[in-house]
Write a protein that binds this DNA or RNA. Sequence first.
RNA 1: GGGGUCGUCGUCUAGCCUGGUAGGAUGGCAGCUUUGGGAGCUGUCGACCUCGGUUCAAAUCCGAGCGACCCCGCCA
Length: 483
Amino acid sequence: MPAEKAPKLVGITVKKSEDMSEWYNQVVLKSELADYAPIHGFMVIRPLGMMMWEQIQHYFDARIKSLGVQNAYFPLLIPESFFKKEQEHAEGFAPEVAWIAQDENAESEERLAIRPTSETMMYDMYSKWIRSHRDLPLKINQWCNVVRWEIKATKLFLRTREFLWQEGHCVYSTHEEEREDTLRFLKEYQRVAHELLAIPVIMGWKTKGERFAGANDTFTIEGFMPDGKALQMGTSHDLGQNFSRAFQIKFSGEDEKDHLAWQNSWGISTRLIGAVIMTHGDDKGLVIPPHLAKNKVVIVPIIFDASREQVMKAAAALEKQLHEYNALVDARDNYSAGWKFNEWEMKGIPLRIELGPRDVGNNQCVLVRRDTGQKKIVPLHEIKKVVDEELSAMHHAMFAKQEKWVKDSLVTVSTMKEFESALAQRKLIRALFCGQVDCEKALKEKTTATSRCIPLDEKPHKGGACIHCNQPAEWYTLFAKAY
RNA sequence: GGGGUCGUCGUCUAGCCUGGUAGGAUGGCAGCUUUGGGAGCUGUCGACCUCGGUUCAAAUCCGAGCGACCCCGCCA
């Protein structure tokens, strides 16, 4: 094989635009975000992937605490009887619950499930804790793992049998308060997506057919991926009194009477990391959005024997100066500078600083942006200011690029023919829809598209007809193929 | 749940059809040397997914299992 044609085995060997599925797998594995665990459907999150999750945690945890939410921790196992208390919830989750096999020595006859979500365990406890309207609102969140026994299809970060998430579960004395917070937490999710992940998302509510099992309303942030598939990136559920009725979460009101409480629940998961990979990655690998990256800068010293000492000294000074960006110095002696460039690009570090003897002599360095590859010569005394500007510019450029992509992908259609043609072009489709479960099911069977949401900024459209069944339809609804 | 593709050093792969010493590249380690876009030399380490069957002999043929990937279905 001629040397110049030899595949670079260490890098990404397929183009994102040609085979996104294979590209995605390679990025996850080769950038060392995660690896397959020796159990089907399970993954190991490696340090770089965990760094991203921790960044999301740090950011979001501070936000919800400022909104009066406290963290707690509830058990991994849930008694079967708890599940059965809320019928819709039980039926909705039944197919994907993992049960613990009971041995002969089990103390109890009752089966135990590994939590697929913790409504039932948490609400059983809530029913004990809540007595008075003075106990409300109760706002509790937990960061944990859940298990949903997907039958077959799995994809690292996007669909695995176990994943990490946060689940917030709040209780209120009035529907108004509860509804207001349901939407507030949804907005916080949008904020995570926009500010941290640089991914534009559409806030909206789900049709009846796409609702969380046991909720009166489900709100979502939907992302639109580069392959034309939608990704649900977070949900916030208005549970009404469905669970408080099932679990008898009651409080004495100011009127001295008993009332059922109002509840919401909301969650985001490590799936967000999958969204970041797909949205921003390129043919060289991962691109970590600057606000999400912990190590925002890598310094690669260009080492020659004659100037080793001066260059390393300058690199150390730079590292110190860029401490708040957790700058790394790649001082490894066994790799060439070019090799390091490629590796850090694959791993998606937002900014790279090249520092060689020429630069040290001129009191400058070379700054390279991961998203554009643009190189810039920067005087050393200005580096901190320029790094700050470039990180900010990079974030905005990445967000704007995706925002344009979503905007350009959005197509409003009025006939099924247009619908199917837009779907074939992998567009995000906007159409009048009746919202009926049966109609949606039939539409899905015919086209494979699912309703994603009714955007919150849509206004009701009087006198419209459903694109599919022609029955009265008030709302423009978004459709796409989905992950 | 249905259909398909595939499991060989850490990674990519040759060998399988036609059974007979598992070869290469990349990588790891040691040393020298080099570092501004995946450098070079020398030495060295490292693999047939598991179980069973056929056979004098199995990476190769047969069966089962396990696992990965792709398409469809299912799925907050």
